[in-house]
Design a protein around this nucleic acid. Structure first.
Lengths: 193, 193
DNA sequence: CTTCGACAAACTAATGTTTGTTAGCTTAAT
DNA sequence: ATTAAGCTAACAAACATTAGTTTGTCGAAG
């Protein structure tokens, strides 16, 4: 095929790496493990990628960019703050379902990034959190939200959305959309009657 | 001193190990790293512990037992279901603050446990979740909670409480108790007005 | 003829652990 | 009190294994 080109082999390596990193962690995955999954010798992979660290960087950077660009898009919307926050929650859940392995890696293994990229990743995440927090803050100011502690609300939402990776399986009782609805209900209206 | 006995050296190793495992992960921490922190050669530590795996097991098992015994204690209380759930949330937050390193290890590095202990740990966690879920279920049946999806509520709570490890620093604006109150408010009454 | 992508083999560094040894303490017999 | 034996916990050195990566080679495709 013509489509079995450079980019595909490289992407195959990145995809399998994300799966293995999620399963066994960055340190727990050897290049030989990865090579077996890709169907290639470890040495051969170096024709497509520069290093194991580069694999991690490419995965983390892609996810970070996705979040940041989607946030920017939602910010420009003219919806209410409540709807913007809901949209962000939906984004997190959907990304976790559609690209779960990579998101898990960006959530857990980012700390193994080598130094120039580590700082870049942390800065990107900090910016994202700042933008998210601003929406909550403005929502409170606009009277759409209760006057909660903004940091507590932000990190409760960000964390509450992470368990999807451990729990959601495509053929489960809940569809993706139902799951989003349930989580949003839980976070916005709470458990108590 | 008389108190510089067997148990203390061993406990020192476990404590420093928890800190390092939290910081750099189980795989990212070498026995030589740990030895330097303890103030001893790597070989010397084997007079106190059997293996690196045993260190991980001792940390994870201790935390698992803490959660399980505390759950049993709360279950026997005669409080409302809402109060029992609140007590469990407080337990998680307090344990995270007081024993943060070990809790982090039990949350993240349990998957590196060797096989007989891995299954034991997963079973223990499953049992804990079952007991927690039962409280939510009974709370709904008793009309104390909204009729939410029990699994969604359970894992939202369990996850929402984890970020404390990444965020809380003793000298922060919020005291431990204030933090508990804020998180409980967020989870029980939600963000929306 | 050149390029690409695969491979086997080897390299260096680091890993968890074992071994052999030794200094210092405790204990009990002399 | 002194000595001898035994135990504890430290160390240096070495072990086998595994890690990520480099090198040289070779066939196939353009």
């Amino acid at each position: 095929m013509l489509t079995t080109r450079k980019t595909n082999r490289r992407q195959l390596i990145l995809d399998e790496a994300a799966k293995l990193f999620k399963q066994k962690g960055f340190g727990g995955t050897s290049m030989r493990d990865l090579a077996r999954e890709v169907g290639m010798e470890a040495a051969s992979m170096y024709n497509h990628i520069k290093s194991k660290d580069e694999i991690l960087d490419l995965i983390c950077t892609r996810i970070a960019h996705t979040y940041i660009s989607q946030l920017a898009e939602i910010e420009q919307t003219e919806a209410s703050y409540a709807d913007k926050v809901k949209a962000l929650i939906r984004l997190h859940i959907r990304l976790m379902i559609e690209d779960g392995a990579a998101v898990s890696v960006a959530n857990h293994d980012w700390k193994y990034l080598p130094e120039p990229q580590l700082t870049a990743f942390k800065d990107a995440r900090k910016n994202y959190e700042k933008g998210f927090a601003a929406l909550i803050e403005q929502g409170i100011a606009a009277g759409e939200f209760q006057p909660v502690n903004v940091s507590v609300a932000l990190f409760t939402i960000l964390s509450a959305v992470r368990w999807v990776e451990l729990w959601y399986r495509p053929g489960r009782e809940l569809s993706a959309e139902e799951l989003e609805d349930h989580i949003i209900t839980m976070l916005l209206t709470g458990l108590a009657k």
